[in-house]
């Protein structure tokens, strides 16, 4: 049984139809990971004990594989009576896993904002929250745009892991075709090529965005 180009082409529409699912999962996971990562970093900065605990949590998340987290969420949550749709479990798993990395990005970004900025904010009587929102965060965003973009691309590239817990994204739909037709090579290759093109396009878009941000910085 060889590689049939005709059959490969026939699988394209099916796999193409779930590109949207992949992108939505990616977007929600990016938002989740960034939100959770930022919360982790804010908690870590709130005190000595929190610093110690959150460092451990963040290191732990970073040292464990994403597949481990997906299985953990998929099998362990129902055990405690939390029943979510698999897609939600997948988004949750990616969010938790990448929050560890994004917390580090936020840490570096905040550390890069000069210490004097925090002091000036305090001297002007700004509260903690106002100082973060109006002084630290806007400066931090420019520091972290590039590494954050890279992690967003990583999140996109991690979405096929969700096939392991039966989420219908691109790899999952390729497997659906495969199990219906008993032909694995064609749908998987098509999924691979299409995913590569998608990843390259998104990477290009992120780079473009970075360049714009940097340009805006050079006013």
């Amino acid at each position: 049984m060889g590689f049939e180009i005709g059959f490969a082409i026939a699988t394209i529409p099916t796999i193409l139809s779930v590109v949207g699912t992949t992108l939505i999962i990616t977007a929600l996971s990016c938002a989740g990971a960034a939100g959770l990562g930022f919360a982790f970093e804010m908690i870590r900065r709130s005190g000595w004990t929190a610093d110690y605990v959150m460092r451990f949590v963040i290191d732990f998340i970073r040292a464990t594989p994403v597949l481990g987290w997906l299985y953990f969420m998929y099998f362990v949550l129902p055990f405690y009576g939390v029943r979510l749709p698999t897609t939600a479990v997948g988004i949750l798993g990616l969010s938790v896993y990448y929050s560890g990395y994004l917390a580090e990005v936020f840490r570096a970004g905040i550390d890069a904002v000069a210490k004097g900025q925090q002091e000036a904010a305090r001297a002007l009587g700004l509260g903690r929250v106002d100082a973060v929102v109006f002084v630290i965060a806007p400066q931090m965003l420019r520091n972290i745009a590039a590494p954050m973009g890279n992690y967003f691309v990583s999140i996109l590239k991690a979405t096929p892991y969700l096939a392991a817990i039966a989420v219908p994204e691109m790899l999952g739909s390729a497997f659906d075709i495969a199990s219906d037709t008993y032909r694995y090579a064609e749908p998987l290759t098509v999924a691979g090529v299409m995913f590569l093109l998608l990843a390259l396009a998104v990477t290009g878009g992120v780079k473009q965005l970075e360049r714009k941000l940097l340009k805006a910085d050079r006013r």
Partner: peptide, 16 residues
């Protein structure tokens, strides 16, 4: 730029 997991399956199933 490829996703590792997709490549894994592509090579596992397509190379043979």
């Amino acid at each position: 730029s490829s996703s590792v997991i997709i490549l894994l399956f592509v090579f596992y199933y397509a190379l043979p």
